[in-house]
């Protein structure tokens, strides 16, 4: 199965672990992800707040490029980032609903020699493709290192399951596709009532107090159910829960160290792929103690410790083995 692949800006650097692990599992899963040539940022959630038409034009340049490149031959574009997935599918849906909007966007695209007919390209989230196109049975066959005993909290965040501009591939409030995927890998999936609640997105940059409270609720929920690890499907969710976990602990006097991994990283481990190929080791909260439970002892180079006094600046806490 061949698809156009839209990594989005986050996966180029901040979330390179997500990109790496996606590429590593694509081969055994038999999916061919062809990166969309010269894609541009889709504007995250900020652009649409500033100017509507340029926002739609920005997103639609990608759709137009995908149509020209035949959506990988399958007329489908796969996004691993929740916000990218939302933007691409939303622009396509609203342009289909409103010929007037589509005409305006096309007038703008014409300035760059491009055009796009709404409905030409389907936008899919990576999780949907892996669970529903590849299928759980095919995945099960590939599992060599089952993740027995690993207690996983599946975190979906908001916009992958809501509102479903392309199609609704899972329940809007209590999704289960990632739960099923994790079970097939052998993991123990905990009940995680807040699994589709919001992590605040870019709120960390706007109002730290509001953002940290949203993140705290998620960490508390996962920790109440004794999760060893939270799995995510969005680079921003990963960043918020991982990089700000220390700030949450400082703000609320808590002591959480729950590693935050991408679902593709756990798929890779269950397939017996080496941790370094899956980008494991780039997380703030060390995943090694948790992964040791499943016999995966990632041989990742130690992150150089800071020379600064930890008390002087609120340094991100780096949990080491034995410190838990």
């Amino acid at each position: 199965m061949k698809y156009s692949y839209y990594p989005g800006c986050s996966l180029e650097r901040q979330a390179s672990a997500y990109h790496q692990s996606t590429m590593a599992v694509a081969r055994p899963l038999n999916i061919d992800l062809v990166e969309l040539e010269d894609w541009n940022c889709c504007g995250a959630i900020e652009y649409i707040a500033v100017d509507l038409l340029p926002a739609y034009a920005l997103i639609s340049r990608n759709l137009a490029l995908a149509a020209n490149q035949n959506g990988g031959g399958n007329h489908q574009i796969v996004a691993p980032c929740s916000a990218c997935y939302l933007n691409l599918s939303k622009a396509d849906k609203y342009m289909s609903d409103s010929p007037e909007l589509a005409a305006k966007v096309n007038t703008a695209l014409a300035a760059g020699g491009l055009s796009y007919t709404p409905g030409t390209i389907r936008t899919r989230h990576l999780l949907d493709v892996i669970v529903n196109d590849v299928g759980l049975d095919a995945i099960k066959e590939r599992v060599t290192n089952a993740l027995y005993n690993l207690r996983v909290a599946p975190y979906y965040g908001c916009v992958v399951v809501r509102p479903g501009f392309d199609h609704q591939f899972d329940d809007t409030e209590y999704p289960t596709s990632m739960d099923k995927l994790m079970r097939v890998l052998g993991a123990t999936v905990i009940d995680f009532p807040l699994k589709s609640h919001c992590c605040g997105g870019h709120m960390t940059q706007i109002s730290q107090d509001v953002a940290l409270e949203l993140i705290r609720r998620l960490l508390k929920n996962a920790s109440d159910y004794d999760a060893d690890v939270i799995v995510t499907l969005c680079p921003m969710c990963q960043l918020n829960l991982d990089a700000y976990q220390d700030s949450v602990n400082k703000q609320f006097g808590t002591d959480y160290h729950i590693p935050i991994l991408y679902f593709t990283q756990l798929v890779g481990l269950a397939f017996g792929l080496p941790a370094t190929e899956l980008g494991i080791g780039k997380e703030f909260v060390d995943a090694r103690p948790a992964l040791a439970k499943v016999g995966a002892t990632p041989d990742v180079t130690d992150i150089p410790a800071s020379r600064r006094d930890k008390k002087a600046l609120p340094m991100p806490r780096m949990t080491r083995e034995g410190e838990r």
Binding site: D38, D51, P54, A57, T107, A111, G112, L114
Partner: peptide, 25 residues
């Protein structure tokens, strides 16, 4: 953690994108 890059990447079709955004505005 090598999760940061100090250089933003410019896309090849940046002029095309500028033309599109200008018209859209």
């Amino acid at each position: 953690r090598k999760r940061l890059d100090f250089t933003p990447r410019r896309i090849e079709g940046i002029e095309q994108l500028h033309a599109i955004l200008k018209r859209a505005k």
